[in-house]
Write a protein that binds this DNA or RNA. Sequence first.
DNA 1: TGCAGGCTTGTAAGCGCTTACATAGACGGA
DNA 2: TCCGTCTATGTAAGCGCTTACAAGCCTGCA
Lengths: 348, 348
Amino acid sequence: MATSGPGTRPTTIYSVAQLAGVSIATVSRVLQGTGATSPQIRAQVLQAVEDLEYVPRRSARSLAVQRHDAQGLVVHDLTGPYYSELLMGYESAAAKFGQSVIIVVTGQREDPEWAVRELASRVDGLVLANSTLPDDEARALGRRTPVVMLARTAVPGCDSVSAENAQSARELTEHLIAHGRRRLFFVGDPEGSPDVQERYRGFTEALSSSDASEVGPAIRVDFREHSGAEVAAQVMGHVNGPDALVCANDELALSTMKALQRGGVKVPDDIAIVGWDDVMTARYVSPGLTTVRQPLFELGRLAATRLHERIAGAPVAPEPRILPTELVLRSSCGCPETDDRDVPWVTS
Amino acid sequence: MATSGPGTRPTTIYSVAQLAGVSIATVSRVLQGTGATSPQIRAQVLQAVEDLEYVPRRSARSLAVQRHDAQGLVVHDLTGPYYSELLMGYESAAAKFGQSVIIVVTGQREDPEWAVRELASRVDGLVLANSTLPDDEARALGRRTPVVMLARTAVPGCDSVSAENAQSARELTEHLIAHGRRRLFFVGDPEGSPDVQERYRGFTEALSSSDASEVGPAIRVDFREHSGAEVAAQVMGHVNGPDALVCANDELALSTMKALQRGGVKVPDDIAIVGWDDVMTARYVSPGLTTVRQPLFELGRLAATRLHERIAGAPVAPEPRILPTELVLRSSCGCPETDDRDVPWVTS
DNA sequence: TGCAGGCTTGTAAGCGCTTACATAGACGGA
DNA sequence: TCCGTCTATGTAAGCGCTTACAAGCCTGCA
């Protein structure tokens, strides 16, 4: 029974109070459940609320209680499977705390810093993913509002959650060496993101602590799919090229693999290829792509949870929280064809 | 030079006014650019704003101007590549209008309707994707605030944007018939979403206007990857099984294809398979998956734009806005191996 | 010199909600 | 019967911002 049509004044706490024959304070108390109220009055108020389809204005409440019940999530882009799952985890945790999430994608913004400041004024705290804001800006923000860093180098005064990178890179590299590979190259630009930087670090560490080969410079390309052709061309041009490629992510690994295969290179016989993220395609291509699975949903959830705690008054955690990752061995590294555990097309 | 530390009172328009030696009205006018201000005063104010790192409280402004400069986006889940791109398009358009976007994922909510009502109280309008709220609830919402329906059957009083489905389904089906296929089955549950319902309609229309075969019932399974094995088992059980499968989306098509291949069925020789969405995997598998590409980014952008117009006062569009889709022919339908236009691993 | 009229700035009244405090009954014990 | 106490409700003061309106100042013209 909405009495509010176009032109009618919107229903406020005053309309409800009037209809229920009580004061606005009483309405507020009934709705908040704060303060004692007689069952009689409560019923009247709730009835009026229902009749008018009353929903309190968020902005008025925020102004009064100095709280938004909302968290901000700032990411650079949303492409790839990476973010949808992260976002799911984030949103689901935030929902449990009764928090809304406002999302800002800085990638295409003309003025990211302004966007984030603006965001900060409508939330109780924010999560900053990598490649969104420079560290000093982040730190400044962290002084005024709770901030959690996501998959990015720790900043003093801010919490930090991320997935483990260097260790898995080391394992992956050692695994390739165990397969007899000796000329390993890293593909992707370590400057591009802290994640990749860590992966590159793990890669070089594993390499230099073995007698496999000298550590060559990384093949610096953009992380996106279109770089594959470029990498393949570069690799096939070598006289004594690599026999293994550690790629910064799966998109890069997959497109490189395809381009090499089209060029007549055999994977993994001639060149082994591995990546990061375990995207859906990784288990559909042939050979299956060996990669590293990140707990993305969990990462999102953790970020939301930590931010919520901070908003509730918890102190900044002294240590960054780092989630373990998991090697997924398929056959692009030289392992025998997968036995199909955990692939969805097999009934178990 | 943030003078605000923990414990200090937060900076408000009053602090700025005081520091600049003017009234709060003047500060507001300078910041809004409304009303004439002398260059002298303006400079003082801006200086103070900078010194204090002042950002106006959003809630106070919203309360005063009765506007949030925010849009709500309600989706059922975020899995798959579908939503990340849609979201990118949405966010980028909204950003251009100076709008924030607050996102609610109803999938795991205990009370979606409450969540959406709550959302409605902190935004100027909302976009409702399919499978989020029942129609009557949506319509009720549409009476009180601008609402745009996304990829969902039109609701009177609400705008509606979606991608074309029936037509492409018809084309896809006719294409398979032209390949000589005669026993075509649809895979996926038409009840599951309006999109799929439309696709099924196109499928049956094409079939009944040809002399290919009778229209069999759809193989009703969940849209997710794990259904592939089930479909394959069902299909291989037939004595005179299908020679073509039109799957409701790519995930289903891909997992079914894999499962069939593992069962010794040749694609496309024994059975042709097609899907919808053109996910990344579709161009990496062998044979390449014939599918339908939807303009997701554009769809997101359109939804944001339409909502913005509605918020600005435009009337509800009488007709739903339907974006065209595009057939992507690869070889799972029986076409010869793709010539690799538009695949990223080929330098052009 | 006086005053109309155009600028610039200040004053103050909201916007809708929460909440500290005041107030009015109801009840029980002295 | 009176008063202290407790409970249920109302009153009113904000929260930080915008904006209609008032007020002051300066310019230029009669």
